[in-house]
């Protein structure tokens, strides 16, 4: 509400603004005209079942898949049509679904390659990431392909942090991880956000995601069907039914 007001009064635009985005793979329409906003400094989550079009949306933002129509602006600048490297250079980073660490590169090299576009000294950043994920420091010289799934996810997050992004997008960081590791990842997400990083989080683990999110969108077969604060959606009966499991009880 306040955002809406500000927008009208001062022409305020959110950090990331998606309008009427459509993406298709050949004949298959994966994203059918969605609107989504990510205000600076917030955690926004996009939840939805498998195949809803969540990954497609994120991949369209960084132009790893071409949007059919619509608009995606970052601080008011149009991103559609820009090369992925240009978009990343603006301070947007994606932790892709399935982690995609470089298996033949060492842990340290994976972190360094995350800072590929930086020319300054990386030592402080590497130490910071090793502080967050001590497991990575122990395995610094190991090939990333030999890490466990959880360690690879930590590495993927660490690698993304190395570019010092302003907007960090994560595609199902909890997928396939043990509950304890998932909790760790969500703790890090909240910590990064407290430091001022804006986060767009995609999750099937709706429960966890809605708890950390300032604002949330629900995507169903390519369309946004619900939006609200994390708290609102946690309390929403239809969301409970569809995404949180019937046994879920809201405190």
């Amino acid at each position: 509400m306040i955002q809406k007001l500000l927008k009208h009064i001062w022409g305020w635009t959110p950090m990331l603004k998606i309008s009427n985005l459509q993406v298709a793979y050949g004949g298959i329409e994966a994203v059918k005209g969605i609107d989504l906003e990510v205000p600076e400094g917030k955690i926004v989550t996009l939840i939805g079942a498998n195949g809803a079009g969540k990954s497609t949306t994120l991949r369209a933002i960084v132009n790893l898949v071409k949007a059919k129509s619509g608009s995606i602006t970052y601080h008011g600048d149009e991103l559609l049509g820009l090369d992925t490297t240009k978009i990343v250079d603006k301070g947007i980073t994606l932790v892709p679904e399935g982690r995609h660490v470089f298996p033949d590169l060492t842990v340290l090299e994976n972190l360094k390659i995350g800072a590929y576009m930086r020319k300054d000294n990386l030592d402080a950043d590497i130490q910071k990431i090793y502080g967050l994920f001590p497991r990575l420091e122990e395995r610094s010289w190991q090939q990333a392909g030999t890490l466990s799934g959880g360690e690879q996810q930590m590495l993927a997050v660490g690698r993304a942090m190395m570019s010092r992004p302003k907007l960090l997008m994560m595609d199902e960081p909890s997928l396939g991880l043990a509950p304890l590791v998932v909790q760790g990842i969500f703790d890090i997400i909240e910590a990064l956000n407290k430091e001022g990083m804006t986060i767009l989080l995609i999750e099937q683990n709706a429960n966890m995601a809605l708890r950390v999110a300032d604002y949330a969108y629900v995507l169903e077969t390519g369309k946004i069907t619900k939006a609200g604060t994390g708290r609102e959606l946690l309390a929403d009966d239809s969301i409970k039914e569809a995404y949180l499991g019937k046994s879920h009880r809201n405190k």
Binding site: T84, H100, Y116
Partner: peptide, 15 residues
């Protein structure tokens, strides 16, 4: 070495 395994992720690194 990065491009040899994964174009998309390499692009995400700004390569």
């Amino acid at each position: 070495r990065a491009v040899a395994v994964d174009y998309d992720t390499a692009k995400l690194m700004g390569i």
